[in-house]
Each structure stands twice: as C-alpha cells, then as structure tokens.
C-alpha cells in the first residue's frame, strides 16, 4: 500500500511537472525513457535470475500448483476481454495488455506506455494499482465466501509481496507457499505476455 501510494505521488509529480514546466525537446525525454526502460528490464531480469532458489519450492508443491497462476492468466484475460468488448475506446489487444499486468503496475505501465503510448500506460498504471488495492480490501470477504485461493487469484503478481501478509492472515499460512509461487510465476510472465500481446502479428 505504501509503495503504491509512493508510485502515485511520483506519477502526480511528473504530471504536474509536465503540465506546468516547459517540455524540453521531445526526443530527449523519449530517449531517457527508453534507456531507463531497458535498464529496468535488465535489473528485473537480475532479480528473477537471482531468485532461482525458488525452484525447489515448486518441486515440493507438485505440478498441480501450476493450475493456480494458469487460472489467474486465463481468468484475467477472459475478464478483460469481456470488458474491452463493451468498453468504447478500448480495443481487445489493449484491454488484454492492461490485464496482463496482473497487478504489477510499475513494469506493465512503462512497457505499455512505451509500446502503445502514454494514454494506455496511464490506464495500465491505474488498473493494476486498483487490482492491488481491491485485493487488500476484499481479501477477508473473498477468503470466507469464495475460497482460500480466491485472494491469491485476486492478488495476481502482488501475491508474492505486497498482498502476501493479508493473504496468509485470512487464507492461512499454508497458502503462503502457493501465494508466493503464483505471484512469482505471474511476475516473471508480465514482461513477456504484455510485449507479446501488443506486438504479436495476428
């Protein structure tokens, strides 16, 4: 919660700066953004490769645990496809790309902003921050009324860090392992899936 508020503050500061300040020659901002994005992807890669120690956890839990992140992927894409079909101004590809952030708002919004323009980047930022906030708010209800895995599904990629404490509190500590695994799998998937959805030629 604290970090998503910080991100929002950062976004608002940029918004204010862009609206009030003189925009310097456009290419310099674009070049800076692109360089920072490549640096970010490289750094995210280091984090992912460095957590290679997580694989034994998967072995212990068994292959069926894969059904959880798989369900999140399929469900998220179906849900956003339905919304995109009814929402004027949002194409299927764009809707799916926003959904494929799975709550990982920072990475998904900058990739989408780069590939499809800042408007969709903003939608991705807000939609994925909302996903995290709704998960934090709805977890008690979801765990009691729908099932122990429901908060893990709602949390998406955030189930491994920001929403993990509330998930283990209401679903039980046993579900912590599933939450971390599902969140990690989705986190790794985000850059691939978002890029693929927006660039694949179909």
């Amino acid at each position: 919660m604290k970090s998503s508020l910080l991100i929002l503050a950062c976004f608002l500061a940029g918004l204010l700066g862009g609206a009030l300040g003189r925009v310097p020659a456009n290419w310099s901002i674009e070049t800076l953004t692109l360089a920072a994005l490549y640096a970010l992807l490289f750094l995210v890669g280091i984090g992912v490769g460095g957590s290679g120690g997580a694989w034994p956890m998967l072995r212990r839990a068994g292959a069926r645990i894969l059904l959880v992140p798989l369900g999140v992927v399929v469900g998220t894409l179906l849900g956003t496809a339905v919304v995109a079909a009814f929402l004027p101004g949002v194409g299927l590809r764009e809707g799916l790309a926003v959904g494929a952030g799975f709550g990982y708002y920072s990475l998904s919004s900058v990739i989408i902003g780069q590939l499809r323009g800042e408007m969709l980047g903003v939608v991705a930022l807000l939609a994925n921050i909302m996903r995290e906030m709704f998960t934090l708010l709805a977890t008690p209800l979801l765990a009691r009324r729908v099932g122990r895995l429901a908060p893990i599904a709602a949390g998406g990629a955030t189930a491994m860090d920001t929403t993990l404490p509330i998930i283990t509190r209401f679903s039980g500590n046993r579900y912590g392992v599933i939450a971390v695994f599902s969140g990690l799998a989705l986190t790794v998937l985000v850059p691939f899936l978002v890029t693929l959805i927006l660039t694949a030629g179909i």
Binding site: G75, V90, G99, L126, N128
Partner: peptide, 19 residues
C-alpha cells in the same frame, strides 16, 4: 477504463481459480 478493466480482471481470475 482502468476501473472497468481492473474489475474485469479480478472477477475473471477469482472465478477461474474458484473452478
């Protein structure tokens, strides 16, 4: 748009994982 997509993503994933 973000709110609508977010609710769609949440509903879809909770439903599928419930199944």
């Amino acid at each position: 748009q973000a709110l609508a997509l977010s609710l769609g993503a949440l509903t879809g994933s909770v439903l599928l994982v419930w199944l």
